[in-house]
């Protein structure tokens, strides 16, 4: 081998090693964050943490039950608003999205996916808080719904597109009208994938904080009313982490661990739903 060939080989090996190291470096923060979450969060989690509401500053103990329930209500309502729109738009893209409107919707969905959530929060404030004069959980739900629609639309489109064309033809040849072909055969076949997409979107909005700042606002007490301020887990974490008290910092870690666990659970459920589709029946 000539010296040049050896040099080239060495360079190739070195660069292979370098991208490996870079890849490891990219994954490292995740490992660190998870380790810290477990290390600092787990010790503060007990039964009370899940079933109690906050205690006055200075006392220790207390929990985030109100924030967990609040998050569930806000995210659940967001799903009620956002999922039908997102899934409908996604089916449109897959079934009729070949023309100019289809291109536009697809493009806008991708662009909206990258729109800062804080901007959407401001809009929700303008439309739903300012006119009524007080903060509300419903405004937060609408903001989160606006964030989830583009995501759900695109994943739904992809999943519906995966359904083989032959199934559609078979249904049409049986005398199914187009709309029933679409709903009862094509969309029904894609349901597992659509659920996966929805779960991923829920995992994403469940962790959103910025759009809640001037909509749900936060609440120290237990509240079940959509028309009033409500606490949510991410908001609670933000308040605790940026506050001055040791006790709060401890609770911030614990809440962050719980939020992370919830998000991971949703992500796992999403994977599981997909596996059902590809696995044996």
């Amino acid at each position: 081998m000539s010296a040049r060939a050896i040099r080239r080989r060495i360079l190739s090996a070195a660069m292979t090693g370098l991208v490996g190291v870079l890849c490891a470096a990219a994954v490292l923060p995740l490992v660190l964050i998870f380790a810290d979450l477990l290390h600092k969060g787990a010790t503060s989690i007990d039964w009370n943490f899940f079933v109690r509401t906050p205690v006055p500053i200075g006392q220790s103990g207390g929990g985030v039950a109100h924030a967990i329930v609040g998050s569930a209500i806000i995210v659940g309502t967001a799903c009620l608003i956002g999922l039908p729109i997102g899934i409908g738009a996604g089916i449109y893209l897959a079934e009729y999205g070949t023309g100019r409107l289809g291109w536009t919707v697809r493009f806008v969905a991708d662009v909206l996916n990258g729109t800062p959530s804080i901007v959407i929060g401001i809009l929700a404030w303008t439309w739903f808080v300012r006119p009524v004069g007080h903060f509300s959980a419903l405004a937060a739900s609408v903001a989160l719904a606006m964030l989830m629609v583009p995501m759900v639309a695109r994943t739904t489109e992809e999943m519906v597109r995966l359904v083989p064309h032959s199934l559609r033809e078979a249904a049409l040849a049986l005398g199914y009208p187009r709309w029933r072909t679409s709903l009862q055969v094509v969309v029904r076949t894609a349901v597992a994938g659509i659920v996966t997409g929805a779960l991923v979107a829920v995992a994403r909005i469940a962790g959103e904080t910025a759009p809640l700042l001037f909509t749900a606002l936060g609440n120290l007490n237990f509240s079940l009313s959509l028309g009033h301020p409500m606490q949510a887990l991410p908001l609670q974490i933000f308040t605790y982490a940026t506050g001055p008290f040791e006790e709060w910092h401890r609770l911030a870690w614990a809440s962050a661990l719980v939020l992370m666990a919830l998000v991971l659970l949703l992500a796992m459920a999403a994977r599981w739903a997909t596996r059902q589709r590809y696995g044996t029946r």
Partner: peptide, 8 residues
């Protein structure tokens, strides 16, 4: 990494 919420 993308699933970790911003606030975390």
């Amino acid at each position: 990494l993308a699933a970790v919420p911003s606030v975390v």
